[in-house]
Simulated scan of single mutants.
Amino acid sequence: MDKLRVYQVASLLLLLANIGLAFLLFRGPHHGGHSGPRAKNILNLTEQQQEFFHESQRQHKRAMEDINRQHRDVLHDWFQQLKTEPAPQNPTIPSAIDRLEREKIQKTYAHLIYVKSLLGEDQRSRYPEFVDQNLRRILAGPPGRKGGKHGH
Rank of each mutant, 00 (worst) to 15 (best):
Q57Y: 05
Q70P: 08
Q70A: 12
N41F: 05
P86K: 03
R69S: 09
Y109C: 02
H54G: 00
H31G: 05
L43P: 07
F53W: 01
I42L: 03
G36F: 07
L45Y: 12
F23M: 12
G36E: 08
P94G: 09
L15V: 11
G28R: 08
H71L: 15
R62M: 01
Q106I: 00
A22F: 14
F26I: 11
I19W: 05
I113C: 00
L12V: 08
E55G: 14
E103V: 04
A39L: 14
P94M: 08
R72D: 07
Q70T: 11
D66P: 03
D77T: 10
A63E: 14
E51A: 09
Q80W: 14
A22S: 13
L16Y: 02
Q80A: 15
R27T: 13
A110C: 01
R27K: 15
F52S: 00
L45G: 09
M64P: 08
K83R: 02
W78T: 11
Q81I: 04
R102A: 03
A87G: 13
L112P: 01
A10C: 02
H54Q: 07
Q49W: 01
Q59S: 03
G32C: 07
A63H: 06
D77E: 13
Q70Y: 10
P88N: 10
N68H: 05
E51F: 02
T84H: 03
S35F: 06
N90A: 08
L43I: 10
Q89D: 15
L13D: 03
L112Y: 04
I113R: 12
I97R: 12
T46F: 00
P94E: 12
H54R: 13
H54W: 11
G33C: 01
R38V: 02
G33L: 06
H111W: 15
Q50T: 01
G36V: 06
L14Y: 00
L45A: 01
R69H: 11
L15T: 15
E51I: 01
Y109R: 03
T108F: 09
D77R: 13
F79K: 08
N44C: 01
P88K: 04
E47K: 04
R38G: 05
A87Y: 15
V74K: 07
P86Y: 07
F23Y: 11
F79P: 00
E47N: 10
L75E: 02
H111R: 13
A10F: 05
Q57H: 11
V74D: 04
A63Y: 08
G36Y: 07
D73E: 15
L43A: 08
A10H: 09
L75H: 05
L13N: 02
D98F: 07
I67Q: 08
Q49Y: 00
R72C: 06
T84L: 00
K40W: 04
K83E: 03
I93C: 05
F23H: 13
R38S: 05
R38Y: 12
E47G: 03
L100P: 00
P91W: 06
R58K: 00
L100I: 00
T46C: 00
L43R: 05
R58S: 00
I105Q: 15
P86I: 05
G32F: 14
E85K: 07
W78Y: 14
E103P: 05
H111E: 15
I67D: 06
A110M: 04
H34N: 15
M64S: 07
H111M: 15
I93D: 06
K40I: 02
L12H: 11
K40G: 02
A39Q: 14
R72K: 13
P91S: 07
T108C: 03
F23C: 06
L15Q: 09
L15W: 15
